[in-house]
Amino acid sequence: MSAAMRAAVVVFPGSNADQEMLRTLRLAGFDAVSVWHKDSSLPASTELVALPGGFSYGDYLRCGAICRASPILPAVRAHAARGGLVLGVCNGFQILTEVGMLPGALTRNAHLRFECSDVWLTPTGEGPFTRGLPKTLALPIAHAEGRYHADHDTLARLEGEGLVAFRYCDADGVPSEHGPNGSVRGIAGVYGGPSKNVLGLMPHPERRSEVLHGGADGKLLFDAAMRTLERGLAA
């Protein structure tokens, strides 16, 4: 049997979803370890880097903005540039847009409330984390700044290149226009990187990943990533 696929979860001051990220990665068969934001390198042979949810650096200035100065960031960028898988959930998604690893921005929910609820998602872009997913998934969201925004040219490119990974939808999989937070075209997650190897999404797959959570739809993303790696489809 080959060595387990290694995954690294970056922990920033203020991260609060790193433990469930580690647990879910392990459930999916990864050898998952945490990496402190002050480290300047990833563990040897890291295949997947996860940026967890939370309030990194206190959400100061803008959510995710201060991560631009994080010592671990150059290693994460280099991993992504090589085609390595990167998953940013919630604050992790905000970080990926703030540092320019994904297009667009996440800003205040249109209704201003912190939105804590279960939502339906439909995968709308084929890629390492969405291959073989069912038409709909039920996942929880928990955010105040999750309204995806991008200009017209960026949206045209995202849609033209199949980079919209997930949209909010109803229980039948019919995409929603704005989702629960006012996101443009109901976008909940986007792909980026040289080979769609970087994924950011606002919903929390790691918080709906075992029966105890009331469902395990979220684990399917991690299973898809594992299949992608096992088949050698990611660098």
């Binding site: 200035l61 100065a69 847009t97 297009p103």
Partner: peptide
């Protein structure tokens, strides 16, 4: 450009 503002928004 690098930190204080997010040029996307």
């Amino acid at each position: 450009d690098e930190l204080l503002a997010n040029p996307v928004i």
